[in-house]
Simulated scan of single mutants.
Amino acid sequence: MATPIYLDYNATTPVDPQVLDAMLPFFGEHFGNASSEHAFGWAADEAVKQARERTARLIGATPRTMFFTSGATEAISLAIRGAGDVYGGRRHRIVTVQTEHRAVLATCEAMEREGFETTYLPVDENGLVDLDDLEAALDDETFLVSVMWANNETGVIQPIPEIAERAHAAGAVMMSDATQAVGKVPISVNHDSVDLLSMSGHKLYGPKGVGALYVRQRGPRVKLRPQVTGGGQEGGLRGGTLNVPGIVGLGMAAHLARREREADAERLAALRDRFETAVCEAVPGTVVNAADAPRLPNTTSLRFEGARAAQLLPVMHGVAASNGSACHAHTDEPSHVLRAMGLTEAQARASVRFSLGRPTTEAEVDAAVERVAEAVHTVRRRAAA
């Protein structure tokens, strides 16, 4: 049996050993509640403070702007719903993009059922928003613009500073789901003019079940209404006992990402390009989706004409990849991201996402090329039989 090769790092990443080492004491020796007023609680609280500082530094923020959540999905819901509760009395429109993650789209759909309106911007063939379309959609009814920093399926990076500039000119709050971008590309919330930003631990070699939301506190301050009430934790924005081990893990993962990001990006971009070039040479009829757009250094979406992804994935001899978002894998629908980019249903169903990670080696990439090529040829032969 072939040795498994994991090329699905956009779905989740393994916990870095240094992250695990940092977390373990808080399951045992330092088990205190961070809200408790005694030595056990103080030790936990100090660990949370350090994690908040580390997480903030990764995106150029200050600690008091970071609020811990159970993951990016909760952070997104808190941002959109929380902003709607505060600003919805005067404005009632959200502007977002057709290619957003379901965590954003589903929240917007829920808000629509409560009386809000949503404008879903189209994208071009490379998955990019047209800034003229954005400007045309903005008006004095818009309270929020939500555009993901980098797409989870294609890796396409949107022009966030330019989008933020237009959002602010219309008096709207600028939000970005940066779950896939954090730790992979440089982010500075102040330089890039983002007001709300979501992130998740398990996308950057941290644990599952923890994430964070950045909320601008000045210039101007953004206000949100809490969606989970309780004991007043996280400055009253998110109630509930703090997940100290998870938060410590996120902080260490952010610390490592800040230190390793540039080297990781350079190495992974070279490996990604090597993989794309070799697959395209070995498999005629292969197309790189969004090839002309700026993309995450680790991500490629490949379209294999005449071979459906659902048939390819089980026969790729241990190569782990996906035919779209892991959060949408249980459905039989073609990728809404690729369909929005103009691909036909057949083309979308023939596309596979490969995402490399920190542990990926050159040998794994070369072996994956051979296995993917064999799988495509096998599926095509069966289809022609």
Rank of each mutant, 00 (worst) to 15 (best):
A136P: 09
L24V: 06
Y6K: 15
T3V: 09
D124C: 14
N10D: 03
D130C: 08
L250F: 04
S77R: 10
K203R: 09
D130P: 13
P314N: 10
A181K: 14
L144K: 03
G60A: 08
T119W: 09
T229G: 05
D21H: 07
T331E: 13
A150R: 14
I163D: 06
V228R: 13
F27W: 02
R91D: 12
G201I: 03
S200H: 03
M66P: 00
A346T: 04
S188C: 12
V222L: 01
R218Q: 07
R216K: 11
L7F: 14
A136C: 05
A47M: 10
S188F: 01
G318A: 07
A110K: 11
A47Q: 11
D8A: 12
A367D: 15
M66D: 02
N298E: 04
V173E: 09
V48P: 08
E162R: 10
T62R: 09
E114R: 14
L78K: 12
A257C: 10
G239M: 08
E364M: 13
M252I: 01
H336C: 04
L121W: 00
A181L: 06
A181E: 07
F304D: 03
V369L: 13
L204H: 05
L131P: 15
D177G: 09
A257W: 00
I163P: 10
W149D: 08
P334C: 14
S36P: 07
A269Q: 10
T107P: 05
V319H: 15
S176R: 13
G232C: 02
